[in-house]
């Protein structure tokens, strides 16, 4: 059984990794990398969460046959 909380934790891990890699690619100074990693990681996390909520709303509220 897949737990949504574990999936949330995994999303945080992936966002952090993505944020660090992108910031290392864009910036050179450690302070800029740290700030950029946080900003980019959060951006990605929020974007995925919003898309997940929309997908959930569509699947439950629109596509599920009412009975």
């Amino acid at each position: 059984m897949i737990s949504p909380w574990v999936m949330m934790l995994l999303l945080i891990c992936f966002s952090a990794s993505l944020g660090v890699v992108l910031s290392c690619y864009r910036d050179e100074e450690p302070a800029l990398i740290l700030r950029g990693a946080l900003r980019r990681g959060l951006n990605f996390l929020l974007a995925v969460l919003v898309l997940a909520l929309i997908a959930y709303w569509v699947s439950v509220g629109v596509l599920l046959p009412s009975g």
Binding site: V20, V21, C24, P30, I33
Partner: peptide
């Protein structure tokens, strides 16, 4: 710094 950050990430 970048080396360690990238290795961990």
């Amino acid at each position: 710094f970048k080396a360690v950050a990238l290795a961990i990430a």
